[in-house]
Design a protein around this nucleic acid. Structure first.
Length: 434
RNA sequence: UCCUCGGUAGCUCAACUGGCAGAGCGCCCGGCUGUUAACCGGGUGGUUGCAGGUUCGAGUCCUGCCCGGGGAGCCA
């Protein structure tokens, strides 16, 4: 038998007889000629099958072959401009591993979103969805590579937690041997402990929010990478963020340019501009900008909604940092701006093209006194935070960190209109199946 | 939780002012040596989301419920 090669590498075997193992994506019959679109997870290639070139049994097997049947196809690799992708397989033999039942629900045509999500376990086979999942893997890898090579130690923070990290908002409660426990919504507080042992750290895992959000930017289970650094400031956070994000975009462009352009119809020139430094504007400046752009009645002190974020990011070609938010709309652990306690040392990174906030971070409160006061103001149970307060008792340092939402970042890079396509099996309000 | 749109064949949708429930795709049969979601001919396919009401007659109007899409708030 000829050498088994992944479809992605078929072009390197021009003129040779090769075997591909995959699934039938689409078939077109033209009398004594058949076109078989074959996918194998690495790519898509057209097999051209002439009746006179294949054994009788292979021809008959192909005759009524159903979509998504698993097949092993052998043929000579040939360059042909008429073939999608430029190369095709001049088929000499075909073996049917399993003939799929004939009611495969997903056709190579348009479907409604609800239907596709109900069949997500099959939808991911479609080339576009598979491309997104491959890019997701690259994004994760690129993030870890960058952090690992810049002195960050990967620490796994717990998923089961005893209390709310950022207050008692919407957490998923689970039964922990008769006591309530909660699925984590951030590993940050634990990272603030581990930096005292390791210097620079990051956690990277799933987080859970039980909020009843029904928008293109929300999942109830999503992945977040959270770097945290000892002896670091808000300015350090912005520098690390822009370096890391730029690296990720660069790597994705390097490895997935074709998928981005051909499969996802992404305008990559927008991504090519993503290089440090990113513009930085203060919350005050952002509010002034909004006032100039038609949001005259936006009150100072409120957090931005989606339309505001879009309006701000429209003014810039790159992702933009907005820093020094009002203290009242950020979490209890934010450091104050010296001399201006009404704003805090926080920063959000807004992605271009209306993708909104992909990073939130800041410099953490340094002093025990400030933290104690904040816990009280936020009505948080002090007992649950005693260990956290210890961090300010034994060698407190200025420190800072941020969280980057993986799905939102991927949606932006891929140019998707909803984060649900960036994860294999999205968990959303109103949807837990499959 | 609120606002908004929707639910008709396996899929995407149509059906005027209440009057015989349809098309394209899929699938099945036949034809075709260059298809790109092929094309041509024939065939298959329905508890109109559920329950009740109005009416001679309801996919269509009314009430309630269920399910889903989009958005807001909140967030990454």
């Amino acid at each position: 038998m000829a050498e088994w090669v992944p479809i992605a590498e078929v072009a390197q075997h021009e003129g040779e007889e090769v075997t591909v193992k995959g699934w039938l994506y689409h078939r077109t019959d033209k009398g004594k000629l058949k076109f078989l679109m074959i996918r194998d997870g690495t790519g898509l290639i057209q097999g051209v099958m002439f009746k006179k070139n294949v054994p009788e049994a292979a021809w008959e097997a192909a005759d009524h072959l159903t979509q998504e049947s698993s097949i092993i196809v052998t043929g000579r690799v040939r360059a042909d401009q008429r073939a999608p992708g430029g190369y095709e397989l001049d088929v000499s033999d075909l073996e049917v591993v399993h003939r799929a039942e004939l009611d495969y629900p997903i056709q190579p045509k348009e479907h409604g979103v609800g239907f596709l999500l109900q069949h997500r376990h099959l939808w991911i086979r479609s080339p576009r969805q598979a491309a997104i999942l491959r890019i997701r893997a690259t994004v994760k890898r690129a993030i870890c590579d960058w952090l690992d090579s810049h002195g960050f130690v990967n620490v796994d923070t717990p998923i089961l937690t005893p209390a709310a990290v950022e207050g008692t908002t919407t957490l998923f409660e689970v039964d922990y041997f008769g006591e309530p426990a909660y699925l984590t919504q951030s590993g940050q507080l634990y990272n603030e402990a581990t930096i005292f042992a390791l210097g620079k750290v990051y956690c990277f895992g799933p987080t859970f929010r039980a909020e009843k959000s029904k928008t293109r930017r929300h999942l109830t289970e999503f992945w977040m990478v959270e770097p945290e650094m000892a002896y670091a400031t808000l300015e350090d956070v912005m520098e690390v963020t822009e370096q890391m994000v730029s690296h990720v975009v660069r790597v994705v462009l390097e490895r997935h340019r074709h998928d981005l352009e051909a499969r996802l119809k992404r305008n990559v020139s927008r991504l090519e501009r993503v290089e440090p430094p990113f513009p930085r504007i203060s919350y005050d400046e952002a509010v002034a900008l909004l006032h100039r752009k038609g949001f005259e009645d936006f009150p100072w002190g409120e957090d931005f909604g989606a339309p505001h974020e879009t309006a701000i990011s429209e003014e810039f070609e790159k992702p933009v940092f907005v820093y020094h938010y009002p203290t009242q709309c950020k979490a209890f652990y934010m450091e104050e701006v010296p001399g201006r306690p009404e704003v805090c040392r926080s920063v959000d990174l807004l992605a271009p093209e209306g993708y909104g906030e992909i990073v939130g971070g800041g410099q953490r409160a340094f002093s025990l006194e400030l933290l104690e006061r904040r816990l009280e103001e936020h009505n948080l149970p002090r007992e649950a935070y005693e260990w956290y307060l210890d961090l300010r008792r034994y060698g407190s340092v200025p420190h800072a960190g941020f969280g980057l939402g993986l799905e939102r970042t991927i949606a932006w890079i891929c140019g998707l209109d909803h984060v649900r396509e960036t994860i294999a099996f999205p968990r959303m309000l109103e949807r837990m199946y499959p």
